[in-house]
Design a protein around this nucleic acid. Structure first.
Lengths: 320, 320
DNA sequence: GTGAAAGCGCTAACAC
DNA sequence: GTGTTAGCGCTTTCAC
């Protein structure tokens, strides 16, 4: 069996409670005693048994993250941020992929709840009341959506759309279409708000490559000279469809994405897109969770987005 | 407080031990009693406290997975497989990204070890003896590498290279270069073996997009008409570099990748590459771990790979 | 087949 | 400041 608190206590010539305190409430122990204990701890390579600790404190020292689609590179980036910040605090991270299914998602959170102190939830699709319900089970921090009474980390989609449109207009484009994501998607709706009827909306489309193919086909039937895709994965599908049909990007059509996933810079033409501070969002989510656990009220934190201009947008062919 | 085993016992009019047995050793309880207990369990929504259980059994019901780079889509796919199979068994998955750093990786496994029953380790870079050491800490299953005495899930890289070369030769290519990954990488070395000196080797390059850019630059200085990249991420870099320099793929140069990540099908030209059964590998890894925990000896399981021919390869321009 | 009781390793009163 | 002790919720002997 591994070394227990009793082994440490014996060798340090103190009681188990002193060892416990030396480790988790240093202020309550005389400095010299604490040092002695810590030396023994190091010497023996003692690691407190988490199960035992959690049994009594009710805290697990773990946290969960649920994402809808790990194959959308947006989410690995969030995960990384979460892992980094959590790791700094000695917290481990449970991970789950809900495969875009709200029912699975709720189930996963329910399963996780007893084993974590809180969950970072990327849930574009679930209805508000489901999320509110889950928030009763365990502290929640949402990414890119809001639900009353629940903490959120937001990446400013509205401003992102503004930046895209300003950019397109500066290039002389007059007609553009927005290729929409799932109707239930919170981000989608934020982007619609940002759009303020300045462009017709097509869709809904699946928020992935296949959705982009379908969207491009429809968009080509309009007179628009610029396609604003709901996200990069869709934009990639758009690029692919256009290349397939010998429509030159950006000479004939400009295309923009959203998220700035890794591949946005890797495709050709490289994608003009709105960079989301995904990794940062993961970190902030962990911070918010920690604050919640310390009794702070739910909070909403908004992170700025920034348009990244690459090769998929260019001056409108018909403009001056 | 949540509902405990005692609540169930009271309401089912049995002792706590009977409840415990009804749940985890059904054979030892009379069928009618068991049903009664199960009904109460359902009625109360009882969920055994994992910490308490693990304190006594020594098992956690969790498993860990460590990957070198979550932004390489190869790994999310493995993760999915692991999550799927683990979920079926009610096992939760701890996840960590080592950022390609062997020291971090070892540290992560050490941290995980006490909280999991075993770890699925994707470690292309760590030396054998480090891995052997980690295997003493907790049951390990390796993906795409072998270490004596440790279970492995392998995806047949050698055969993958064979398939690529057969394909290229059938297209009339006579000269090709292999754009190598990290020297320490086990997969890289397996691919070298598969190559059997049939092509010159360039590199090592970083196994990512940037590495591909560098590799393409070097490869262009050779007379090769086909570039075999260590993995898809590199191949994407190669495609990008060639597009940038007006080298037409596949008209002038054929390019192949390895892994069949999602983006291999999304870029243009779509990439000819070797499909790896990544998700399946994740599942098999969990199976192997489960068998290990049941006392089975370490085992090696090899999964087949398959060449996926897309648009980045074509008949050699000089050939008949 | 079932129950009583002894802990698993730890923290948190409570004494001193 | 430190030690003693009572559990946290569960599984697992050991009786019967």
């Amino acid at each position: 069996m591994a070394v227990t608190i009793r082994d440490v206590a014996r060798q340090a010539q103190v009681s188990v409670s002193t060892v416990s305190r030396a480790l988790s409430a240093p202020g309550l122990v005389k400095e010299t005693t604490r040092q002695r204990v810590l030396d023994v701890v190091r010497g023996l390579g003692y690691q407190p048994n988490r199960a035992a600790r959690s049994l009594i404190t009710g805290r697990t020292g773990n946290l969960g993250i649920v994402v809808p689609d790990l194959e959308n590179p947006f989410y690995p980036a969030v995960l990384r941020g979460v892992q980094t910040r959590a790791g700094e605090a000695g917290t481990s991270v449970f991970f789950c992929d809900s495969r875009e299914d709200p029912a699975t998602e709720a189930e996963l959170v329910r399963t996780m709840a007893p084993q974590v102190d809180g969950v970072v939830l990327c849930s574009p699709l679930s209805p508000d009341d489901t999320i509110a319900e889950l928030a009763d089970l365990t502290p929640l921090v949402l990414i890119n959506r809001t639900v009353p009474g629940v903490s959120s980390v937001l990446m400013d989609s509205g401003s992102g759309i503004d930046q895209i449109i300003t950019h397109l207009e500066s290039l002389g484009h007059k007609e553009y279409v927005y290729l929409g994501g799932p109707t239930a998607s919170w981000s989608h709706n934020r982007r619609l708000q940002g759009l303020r009827d300045r462009a017709p909306v097509l869709g809904p489309f699946e928020p992935n490559f296949a959705g982009g193919l379908a969207a491009a086909e429809q968009a080509l039937r309009t007179t628009a000279t610029a396609f604003i895709a709901y996200n990069d994965l869709m934009a990639l599908g758009v690029l692919s469809y256009l290349a397939e049909h010998d429509v030159k990007v950006p000479q004939q059509i400009s295309v923009t994405g959203f998220d700035d996933i890794l591949y946005a810079a890797m495709c050709s033409p490289a994608l003009t897109t709105v960079a989301m501070p995904t990794e940062e969002a993961g970190k902030v989510a962990v911070d918010l969770l920690a604050e919640r656990l310390d009794g702070a009220p739910p909070e909403r934190r908004e992170l700025p987005t920034k348009l990244v201009i690459r090769a998929s947008t260019r001056k409108h062919p018909m403009s001056a």
